[in-house]
Nucleic acid binder design. Structure first.
Length: 210
DNA sequence: CCTACGATTCACT
DNA sequence: GTGAATCGTAGGC
């Protein structure tokens, strides 16, 4: 009997149910403090943005399912990985039941373990806070690409896993980044409050407690 | 088929 | 703070 493995599976199931039960704007904070594991590396999420469906002009799913965005309609707790700006991959966690679009974009993280495996994938990064302070940086550091799209992040057998946070963390909120005016400029960005603001991506002003 | 542009990053002023 | 790089996707014709 592998107790650790058993406990993680149970915890993952409750977390998946929580995601299914809440709209993305409400489940987004619950991803803060969670850990992404891949191989010997582990990183902790400090910034998240929520994306919806037909009601959300800033979402890829705004105009319905396409070959690229079909992953956004995948079952709760799966990876939606897409390519943009000609260079960058982005990692999202799907957060709605199958067929209903909704995802949480992982925008920034801090290294927890295996940091030495991440630096070679970020050759231009210099300062510690340059390593994972952006969605493209995270995918690059972990070596994510099309092959990771659709993985079940809450399965112990997945090469890329999401480990739910044990405790709630203080939250800051702000508007989304990189979304054109009028295309869903809502307060759906979520940060971990405290002393780690230098670790988040892009604009660091205009943040308020949730 | 053609075009515009993007859930960004980086170098440079 | 500003602008270039870079290319797959999606929408329009």
């Amino acid at each position: 009997m592998n107790f650790g493995r058993h406990f993680m599976q149970f915890d993952a199931n409750s977390f998946r149910q929580m995601l299914m039960d809440l709209p993305v704007t409400e489940s987004a904070p619950r991803l803060l403090g969670a850990v992404i594991e891949m191989g010997h590396a582990a990183i902790q999420i400090v910034e998240i943005e929520a994306y919806g469906g037909a009601e959300d002009p800033g979402s890829h799913a705004y105009r319905g399912v396409t070959p690229r965005t079909r992953g956004m309609f995948e079952t709760t707790g799966h990876a939606y990985v897409y390519f943009t700006y000609g260079n960058h991959w982005m990692l999202n966690v799907t957060a709605r039941p199958f067929g209903e679009p909704g995802a949480l974009l992982i925008r920034a993280a801090i290294p927890l373990r295996g940091e030495e495996r991440l630096w070679p994938n970020r050759p231009k990064a210099r300062r510690p806070q340059d390593l994972l302070s952006g969605p493209g940086k995270i995918a690059s550091a972990l070596g994510l690409g099309r092959g990771h799209d659709g993985l079940d992040l809450l399965s112990v057998d997945s090469p890329l896993r999401l480990i739910p946070a044990a405790e709630a963390v203080p939250i800051l909120i702000g508007t989304r980044i990189g979304i054109a005016p009028g295309k869903g400029d809502e307060m759906v960005r979520r940060y971990v409050d405290g002393s780690k603001l230098e670790w988040v991506s892009a604009r660091r002003t205009g943040l308020v407690p949730l």
